[in-house]
Simulated scan of single mutants.
Amino acid sequence: MSPRRIVCLTEEPCETLYALGQQDRIVGISGFTVRPPQARREKPKVAAFTSAKIDQILALKPDLAIGFSDIQADIAAALVKAGVEVWIANHRSVAGILEYVRRLGALVGCAAQAEAYADALERSLDAVRSAAARLPHRPKVYFEEWDTPIITGIQWVAELIGIAGGDDIFPELSCEPLAKGRILADGAPVIARAPDIILGSWCGKRFRPEQVAARPGWDAIPAVRDGELHEIKSPLILQPGPAALTDGLQAIAAIIQGWSARQR
């Protein structure tokens, strides 16, 4: 029997279940959930990313809790010990996000709807990729996930930059699944790789381009010289769910297209 009372420990299962028309199954969500906006009005908030209100979750009598990544291992363990079934996804790529949608749909008994939704997401990716292939210039892009310490972008972000028509300047770091594997000791590698565009998405706080531009030596970077520092709102890009493939990708593509149009 498909689960009927689901607690979403992160945003992506909540967004996906709403997209599939399965929102009535959700009995609790993460306090960081912003998509879809009605979820914040309709569902009790019982978890953060690294912590959860276990007693409140158990009071909701869930038959499934869904989370993301090894960072939520302690939450998962506490729920499992209390007898709750838990699914922790651990995907880090665009292909992984699409597969996540399909697997979640199958898990709740709506595989056909999930397959159709994932197919539609794939078609939208292909449309952006095709448009990007027609751009006359392809920029080097630096994505910053955090400022102190400096943390570069994760794999799905690097892949979306590629789909949108750019080249992530730290492809070797993007494959590191944990943030600690993407820390830069200082800004020298960014200066050396001379990005044309800087994208910032500081999780939980506003990106400050003036602070980035003022870093020692960064005035030599083409992106800083040309004023190509842009914020991508973190709810659009830093969660491995549908938002990254839709609004997040569109935001990146718009910036790259604008940059390309300004080249001589």
Rank of each mutant, 00 (worst) to 15 (best):
D55T: 13
R134E: 14
K81A: 14
A118W: 03
A95F: 06
S124V: 05
A118N: 00
E122R: 14
P139Y: 01
F143N: 05
N90D: 15
A73L: 12
E145Q: 13
R102H: 01
P136F: 03
G83W: 07
S69M: 07
E115T: 12
Q155V: 08
V86T: 02
I71H: 11
D147Y: 14
L135A: 11
A78T: 09
A95I: 02
D63M: 08
E99K: 12
A111T: 11
D63P: 12
I57P: 03
W146R: 00
H137D: 11
L98V: 11
G153R: 09
A76V: 03
A120E: 09
P149H: 00
V80K: 14
R102F: 06
V86N: 04
I75T: 01
W156N: 01
P139N: 00
K140H: 13
D55K: 04
A120D: 05
G109H: 03
T152G: 10
L79E: 01
N90M: 04
A76D: 12
G105W: 06
W146Q: 04
G109F: 03
A73M: 07
A89N: 11
Y100P: 09
D119K: 13
L64E: 10
Q56S: 14
E122C: 15
I150T: 11
S124P: 06
P149G: 04
I71A: 13
I75G: 00
V80L: 10
K81E: 14
R134H: 13
E144V: 10
R123F: 09
L79D: 00
E145G: 01
W156Q: 10
A89S: 13
D70F: 04
H91D: 10
L79R: 02
H91W: 15
S93A: 07
V101D: 00
I75R: 06
N90K: 08
E115D: 15
A116P: 02
L104D: 03
D74F: 01
D119Q: 14
V101C: 02
Q72T: 04
I57G: 05
Q155N: 13
K81I: 09
P136D: 00
A65K: 02
D147G: 07
T148I: 12
R92V: 12
V108G: 05
E85L: 11
A77E: 14
A158F: 07
S93R: 10
P139S: 05
G67M: 03
I57V: 14
V94W: 04
D147I: 09
H91I: 03
A116D: 05
W146T: 08
I154S: 13
V141P: 08
Q155R: 13
V86Q: 08
V128F: 04
L60G: 06
L58P: 06
K140A: 14
L64I: 01
